[in-house]
């Protein structure tokens, strides 16, 4: 049995179609990523799966329970971390954790083994009000609160948004450890670089799933010629390349530009063309596609 099964889910708010015809499943114990920009429908899908919204069409199950009919069963076995920091800012770290443990009918001691790795970092601040914590600490506390009742499935809606790079890396380490406990994790993120840390990902855009596969397969599926290029004048290079007939798409990507071409033009010929336009210190290599390249291509 799959941990999450989604069939033909549709949901609209007024005239806005938030998600349309979503189909996918998440295996038990899998770390599954939902990758897409803001407003792609990620949070709506999370709310449907966590029984907070009823889909207009289609159905979904979590651990075999229907999100509409068996919503009470689901609420006992899932952990949910909403996109916005949603804990009581005026309660201390310990009071928040205690409260969420109590309403799930458990205690901190009972499931301490699950949160231990995370909680040791919070311990020095356990009497501090949650509102006074740093972004990274808030996120750790929210994860602790979502985990305290040992859920079978964990829903993390953009857990790393607004969190510094170091804390983000730490957070993904934590998720890997949680996976070792056998917890299924569905995580959404707008950061493409985090996609490669998931076992499988679904690319979502404007309420539609574009592709579902392992990150490796998804990047391998990119069949068009791709180059990374830089020269002495980064901005002029971007402008010039956009005007070339062989250019299908060119986007800044770190210190390089990623250029996708629509014909089999060699890197030498591109280099020659650019030299004629007055570019110097030209560097051009064959590039391996990233999730972002795939995503932009599918859009």
């Amino acid at each position: 049995m799959n941990a999450i099964e989604i069939k033909n889910i549709n949901k609209s708010f007024g005239d806005t179609q938030a998600v349309s015809d979503i189909n996918f499943s998440v295996k038990k114990g899998e770390l599954f990523g939902l990758i897409g920009p803001d407003g792609a429908g990620k949070s709506t899908l999370f709310k449907i799966l966590t029984t907070l919204l009823i889909p207009d069409e289609g159905n979904a199950t979590v651990s075999g329970f229907d999100t509409v009919k068996d919503y009470k069963r689901i609420r006992k076995i899932i952990g949910y971390m909403p996109g916005k920091f949603s804990l009581y800012q005026d309660l201390s770290v310990q009071e928040n954790l205690n409260f969420f443990a109590t309403i799930f009918g458990t205690t901190i001691e009972k499931n301490y083994h699950l949160i231990k790795d995370i909680y040791v970092q919070l311990e020095p601040f356990k009497n501090r009000r949650a509102g006074k914590l740093s972004g990274g600490m808030k996120q750790k506390l929210a994860l602790c609160c979502a985990l305290i009742h040992e859920p079978e499935v964990l829903f993390l809606d953009e857990p790393t948004t607004g969190v510094d790079a170091v804390s983000r890396a730490e957070f993904w380490e934590m998720l890997k450890r949680l996976k070792a406990h056998g917890i299924t994790i569905l995580v959404s993120t707008p950061y493409m670089d985090e996609a490669s840390l998931c076992e499988r990902i679904a690319l979502i855009q404007e309420g539609k799933i574009l592709q579902i596969d392992t990150p490796q397969n998804i990047t391998n599926s990119y069949s068009k010629p791709l180059f990374e290029i830089k020269s002495h004048d980064f901005y002029q290079l971007l402008k010039d390349l956009r005007e070339e007939p062989f250019t299908e798409r060119v986007e800044p990507f770190g210190e390089y530009l990623h250029l996708t071409t629509n014909s089999d033009i060699s890197s030498n010929s591109i280099s020659e063309i650019l030299e004629k336009k007055g570019h110097t210190q030209i560097e051009i290599n064959q590039a391996i596609a990233s999730i972002e390249d795939v995503f932009l291509d599918l859009m």
Binding site: T50, L52, R75
Partner: peptide
């Protein structure tokens, strides 16, 4: 407003 209602509703309460 703060979203904590969602957390409460997603609990078995």
């Amino acid at each position: 407003e703060t979203g904590t209602m969602d957390l409460l509703l997603v609990s078995p309460l």
